[in-house]
């Protein structure tokens, strides 16, 4: 395939992915917005007013970047995991596998589909957050870069989950038992400065902590960790997951017998 054909194929996959999640918007776009609005009301407004300041900001200001990031992470992951697994389940993934579209383009199309949903949900959640607090972005480039790269990373993870999945249960196990705990313990609701040195050390093994803090640094200008490490880690994980995904697409037996 020449570069024009590759671009056409990539944009076709991306368009189909966007069409999919916008067609079923009551399932894909509305629930995360409602959930995050409840977080804002309960943790930010009701409980937050009793907590006081965190990291030099009101609790509402502190928690908003974390909640936006949480929405981006869960939606990027869920979109690719459910879409690609459904394509496997209904066997329409074969439409792509029999076509000349290279494996990396298939993966890129699905991943960008997940990134699109993650960023749209993140944007809507940001708009809702503006009803609760004023937001100003301290470092725009860092904010955009980290939210985009995080969405890419979790979309890739969702893609790999979908390749391994043999049932719809298999695409909910990782989000329930790994992703949710890592996100909740990843500094969304608190600064790790509140923890004892042991728990601080343990928290620093959680990759989500770096992404949430890098995003918080972009928005508020404060972070519990060195932002450079966040970018190094995210880029490293992206490279790792991309290579893993390519290996599964090229040599794995879960898509081709």
């Amino acid at each position: 395939m020449n570069s024009n054909a590759i671009w056409t194929s990539f944009s076709t996959i991306l368009r189909r992915e966007v069409r999919r999640f916008t067609r079923i918007w009551p399932q894909t776009l509305v629930p995360p917005v409602i959930t995050m609005s409840l977080y804002f009301v309960i943790f930010g407004s009701l409980i937050g007013s009793r907590i006081g300041e965190m990291g030099g900001f009101s609790y509402m200001e502190f928690v908003v970047p974390g909640l936006i990031m949480m929405a981006v992470i869960t939606n990027s992951y869920a979109n690719v995991a459910s879409s690609f697994y459904s394509a496997k389940f209904q066997r329409n993934v074969e439409e792509l596998l029999v076509s000349p579209t290279p494996n990396w383009v298939i993966m890129a199309g699905y991943v960008l589909g997940g990134v699109s949903r993650g960023l749209i949900v993140g944007f809507v959640v940001t708009l809702i957050a503006l009803f609760f607090t004023a937001l100003s972005v301290e470092h725009l480039a860092i904010t955009i870069a980290i939210v985009f790269l995080t969405a890419v990373l979790f979309s890739l993870a969702g893609f790999i989950n979908a390749i391994y999945a043999n049932s719809f249960d298999d695409i909910s196990i990782i989000p329930t038992f790994i992703l949710t705990p890592l996100t909740y313990l990843g500094g969304v609701f608190y600064s790790i400065g509140l923890l004892s040195p042991f728990w601080q050390g343990l928290s620093k093994l959680n990759p989500v902590l770096y992404m949430v803090n890098a995003f918080r640094y972009g928005v508020l200008g404060v972070s519990d960790i060195n932002v450079v490490w966040a970018f190094v880690g995210v880029l490293g994980f992206i490279a790792l997951l991309f290579a893993w995904g390519m290996h599964l697409m090229t040599h794995g037996k879960r898509l081709r017998h």
Binding site: N2, T8, S9, S99
Partner: peptide, 27 residues
Amino acid sequence: PQEFNFSQFEKVYDIVCTQGGFYGMPR
């Protein structure tokens, strides 16, 4: 193929037209 292997929820037009895109055909 022998078995149906298209998305059951997509429209007929989209299924066929999208396949053209996978082969690099201009829209």
